[in-house]
């Protein structure tokens, strides 16, 4: 076996129905940006890390366009709460609740996520 390159060894994990699902090394998440992950059942999750190191996970599907692109949006802070803005038409979603900030009737799914 080769020696693992210098990493923290921490993994990003998502809580699914049957337990914690390991997605990737923590260092693959740049602070301020997202990545997409493919779940075993075919669903897609958008994972984010903010500047303080907090992790968030929501559905990757943008409910307004149908495209799987939320992971490519920019994140920010609105009244103290983290959000991501869709890269297509810029609607914002709360990263904790999944609530769309620009349309009360829309919400995306959220996941529990940890670094372990």
């Amino acid at each position: 076996m080769t020696l693992a390159p210098e990493t923290t060894d921490l993994k990003v994990q998502l809580q699914l129905a049957d337990g914690w699902f390991t997605v990737c090394d923590l260092n693959r998440l740049l602070p301020g940006r997202g990545v997409a992950a493919l779940l075993p059942d075919g669903r897609q999750v958008a994972l984010f890390r903010d500047r303080r190191g907090e992790l968030y996970a929501i559905d990757n599907r943008d409910p307004f366009s149908g495209a799987a692109v939320l992971s490519r949006g920019l994140i920010g802070t609105h009244q103290g709460r983290p959000f991501v803005a869709s890269p297509l038409l810029k609607q914002r979603f709360d990263l904790v609740s999944g609530q769309c900030l620009d349309d009360e009737s829309v919400r995306v799914g959220t996941y529990e996520v940890r670094a372990a």
Partner: peptide, 20 residues
Amino acid sequence: LLSIGMRPTESKEAALEGSA
């Protein structure tokens, strides 16, 4: 393809589904 599985208006359900 984009609209398969999309239920933007029934967001409550969509939110519950698959979300821990």
